[in-house]
Design a protein around this nucleic acid. Structure first.
Lengths: 259, 259
DNA sequence: TGCTCGATTCCCGATGAACGGGAAGGTGTG
DNA sequence: CACACCTTCCCGTTCATCGGGAATCGAGCA
């Protein structure tokens, strides 16, 4: 009832099973799995056996884990790996020059999904974790990616109800349009206190061969963390490097997709 | 006929579909997918629709890609992410001190599956790529992990036919036993010219809370790449750091599992 | 314009694999 | 010893999957 398309197909069951494993539950017993996936236990045991047979799950003693083979297959085939590989060296450059938490994220639905980060510290360990999400409208990465997205994506964004996450969250559509225009004009987004109080998030887009903004590169500058301009420069330089590695070759300004 | 357990279950079909996407085929049309997965086209279309419904696949125009949600779910739940997160900062240390290609791998079947690397150069771009495999007996990581593995794993390794990959590949079981003993005694493995000619691979084990060797950390030292001892020291230091982050707390020597 | 070929979508009847309740066996705990 | 819980196995029912095939779409070509 909650979600319109919650079928009960095999695929859906598999999703529930994979979902049952998360950062706090990297290994489960079969019974725990059945409970967490909300499946009858005999059904669970049968499916688990199939999955073990394909090495998508592994047994360690009595406990089950997602198989390395599953990680391998998904990673190899996912566009994420290509992005990550292209970006990591440049992220290291940024991190070593500006010294702040540096993250790479993509837009997925209403969220930014983070695919890599380096240089996290006590303040940011819980922010922008790899394979986790943050609401797009609450992060500089999300705003920059939306600003450079297609007209449809941007309109859908503006039509959404955007809950204020902090007292600096921008939720007014008219104001957001102005912010987007500013981001497209300057090529970057600077937002104070979006997620981490007393800090500033800065993000720039990364383009692929087709000129689409496929990822956002960001740093979180803590209070007294140095001038914003330094981070912007480092990010823009890195962004061009990553974009070039992805096959992009036109000047940044021309790559902007105007709705 | 080739493989004994090649069923035709739904799970198996899904594996074939995910496998159809790889680094050279990150996006496929539905028809290409059907061919590569060796499935009837009407069946493929039906399954693809299910997968799209769960966001495990995504459409971009007419082409299909593995969905970000699939990557997210699998990454979040996989033990690989925990290892990677714990290891990356220490890998950066190693890389910046010794300056060589640094990789993290786990033992999976007969292979080493690499889960992270940094500092790759022209010589090593094709070696130890993330989410790819190399035969365990042809890498220092593989040897070190096997040396510290359980008796069963080690015996299975020694019983296998080990094709010589280069002229320095060790394939003789008796010789390998001696090598394993030496690795367990010293806590590291130094192997010249295993994969990359004129270079030396050095690897150390990483232990988890239970004292199991769960990963291997390695560097590839090119010719004239400085003394081996420097790399060994950096690796051992990093290994202890990573192991501690994983909850390990006993002295390295005691963590050795003797068969 | 009409033709061809391949990709994609849709339909539908047969069938057999998935389903899950339940019982039996195992294990550890109070 | 009793109890609770996990795991495995069995088995009759049923309903979702299967895939051949037809219809539609669309690009390229003569």
């Amino acid at each position: 009832m909650a979600n319109s398309s919650s079928g009960d197909s095999m695929v859906n069951r598999l999703v529930r099973i994979i979902e049952a494993f998360d950062a706090d539950h990297r290994s489960l017993s079969a019974a725990e799995l059945a409970r967490r996936a909300d499946l009858p236990s005999s059904t669970t045991y049968r499916i688990v056996e199939d999955l073990l047979g394909e090495s998508l799950l592994e047994r360690h003693g009595q406990r089950l884990r997602l198989g390395n083979r599953l990680w391998e297959l998904v990673s190899r085939g996912s566009p994420v790996l290509g992005l990550r590989e292209a970006a990591l060296p440049f992220m290291e450059d940024v991190q070593s020059v500006v010294g702040h938490h540096t993250a790479l994220g993509v837009l997925d639905g209403n969220d930014v999904l983070y695919i890599e980060r380096i240089g996290s510290n006590e303040m940011t360990t819980n922010i922008a974790q790899v394979a986790r999400r943050l609401p797009a409208h609450g992060t500089s990465t999300g705003l920059v990616l939306t600003a450079f997205a297609t007209a449809e994506v941007q309109e859908a964004f503006l039509r959404r109800r955007l809950p204020a996450l902090t007292d600096t969250t921008i939720t007014d559509p008219a104001e957001l349009r102005r912010v987007f225009a500013e981001i497209r004009r300057t090529g970057h987004c600077v937002m104070p206190g979006l997620i981490v109080p007393e800090s500033t998030g800065v993000a720039v887009p990364v383009f692929d061969r087709a000129g689409t903004a496929v990822a956002g590169l960001s740093v979180i500058i803590p209070r007294h963390g140095g001038p914003v301009a330094t981070s912007v420069t480092a990010l823009r330089t890195a962004s061009r490097g990553i974009s070039r590695a992805l096959g992009w070759h036109r000047p940044l300004g021309d790559a902007v997709r105007r709705p």
